[in-house]
Design a protein around this nucleic acid. Sequence first.
DNA 1: ACATCATTAAACTATATGGTTGAATAATTA
DNA 2: TAATTATTCAACCATATAGTTTAATGATGT
Lengths: 109, 109
Amino acid sequence: MSGSTETNLVFSALADKSRRQIVELLHTKDSSIVELTQSFDMSFQAISKHVRILENAAILKKRKQGKFMICSLNHQALTDSLKWISYYSNFWNESFNKLEGLIKKQKND
Amino acid sequence: MSGSTETNLVFSALADKSRRQIVELLHTKDSSIVELTQSFDMSFQAISKHVRILENAAILKKRKQGKFMICSLNHQALTDSLKWISYYSNFWNESFNKLEGLIKKQKND
DNA sequence: ACATCATTAAACTATATGGTTGAATAATTA
DNA sequence: TAATTATTCAACCATATAGTTTAATGATGT
């Protein structure tokens, strides 16, 4: 229940702030590793390692384009973690309760 | 954007499988640390440390009850991480697209 | 008062992690 | 062909992390 190996990889990958930042960058635009590096105060090789970790968690895919490796997000890899957190954050309960509250309030107006 | 210190604490806390398991246990029932320990093949003190980490991330709260420390979930602490993952997993886009697909299909029937 | 139980604190260990640098490879450009 | 650029790989280092054991603290029950 606390998750498959893949879910574990995703949670571990997202634990690092720099890697979350890479996800954010890729969400706006597919990028090569050099491109990504420009947003960080860190060596190219360090970013390359982070990219590798995200790749192992299937959060991003690389495709070769000439001498570049273009990285792009694989949103689907995040859904298991999303489900886990949704469930244990009681998200739907809370939201439905709020909705119910709104409805009651409306009736009383 | 990649998150405040608190969000960072939550992501880090959730990176560990044992800690996610603690969250799962607490979701079914508030428990003391000894109680939690029974579900693990690990020393009491190790679990105590994990509990501390979850507490620092505000994912759980402790209240003293005699000689026990009863742990209970604070679901709200998870919502920032939930939002982050929801956003970058394209969850809502995907879901609305599926919904749209269903609607179109229905019209054609 | 005393033994027990739940917890915390502290010291320690092994391994994982996040970073570095330097060298090897492969595509691009001059 | 030679120089440059993007990437990967490997060796290395410092620190963080996850676990252990032992000792200290504090409430409970006898």
